[in-house]
């Protein structure tokens, strides 16, 4: 369980990233965080693996306040929290396999990892992860030879290899076209249901949020302005979150093709 208790975050330049956030996310939930860009969605999920550190409040994961964590605990936390990025964040010159096995880094000693000496189980796990996102045939290709959607699937495989309890996805489909976006979201949803991994996804497309989420959290100017199950959400809810009328650009479309 993830609990935000009165979390605020002020960046060194004075920008308020988060403001008095109080939420609870239950194990296995698929939560979509929506809001305009700059609303604090990224800051919210980056707080969970401490890529940014809130300046006030308590952030509990399984009853432990992660804001007190120092280097060693932090790395342990991060091995259990997988992250997916808008730009895939693969090492482009490295092979798919090397990128996927890097999900095991937190579990592997520095020397072993620098000489590529992974246990057979880890290699098998990496391969199995690639199979689960249907891209195992690209195993030894260089990552920059893959399309955007394929690279994002490799990124999902990397996260799976981490065997995480939580997956954070920061705008995972913002750089992809509609059909590929649905494919990537479908994989995320599948992993969430099969492995019972808590999944928190930032999105700004409302139709996509409606289609895949169990629960929707709306953010505006660093504050949580909406929190409820997807069944209670309608267009008016989004207009409230966004503080304006819904436009065409807020929809990705193409859900019927997927």
């Amino acid at each position: 369980m993830i609990e935000f208790k009165d979390i605020s975050l002020v960046y060194p330049n004075g920008t308020q990233g988060l403001k008095n956030v109080n939420i609870q996310i239950n194990p296995g939930e698929f939560v979509v965080v929506v809001g305009l860009s700059g609303a604090g969605k990224s800051t919210l999920i980056r707080s969970i693996n401490r890529l940014v550190t809130p300046t006030h409040g308590e952030l509990l994961i399984d009853q432990e306040n992660i804001l007190n964590y120092r280097a060693r605990d932090l790395r342990k936390l991060r091995t259990k929290v997988g992250m997916i990025f808008q730009n895939y964040n693969l090492v482009k010159r490295s092979s798919v396999m090397k990128n996927v096995i890097s999900g095991r880094l937190g579990y592997t000693g520095t020397l072993r990892s620098l000489f590529n000496l992974y246990p057979k189980e880890d290699m098998a796990l990496a391969y199995r992860s690639l199979e689960r996102v249907n891209i195992s045939e690209k195993l030894y290709q260089r990552s920059d030879q893959l399309s955007g959607g394929q690279q994002q699937r490799v990124a999902i495989a990397r996260v799976l290899t981490q065997q995480p309890n939580i997956i954070l996805a920061d705008e995972p489909v913002a750089s992809l076209d509609p059909p590929t976006s649905h494919q990537v979201m479908t994989y995320l949803r599948k992993v969430n249901k099969e492995d019972h991994i808590t999944t928190i996804v930032n999105l700004h497309f409302i139709d996509m949020a409606m289609e895949y989420a169990d629960r929707i959290i709306g953010m505006r100017a660093g504050e949580v302005v909406y929190d409820g199950p997807v069944s209670e959400v309608c267009e008016a809810t989004f207009e409230e979150i966004y503080g304006r009328k819904i436009r065409d650009e807020d929809r990705v479309g193409g859900s019927d093709d997927a």
Partner: peptide, 10 residues
Amino acid sequence: EFTLPPKPKK
């Protein structure tokens, strides 16, 4: 029981 990735073809 697990499957290892195939060896790269070179």
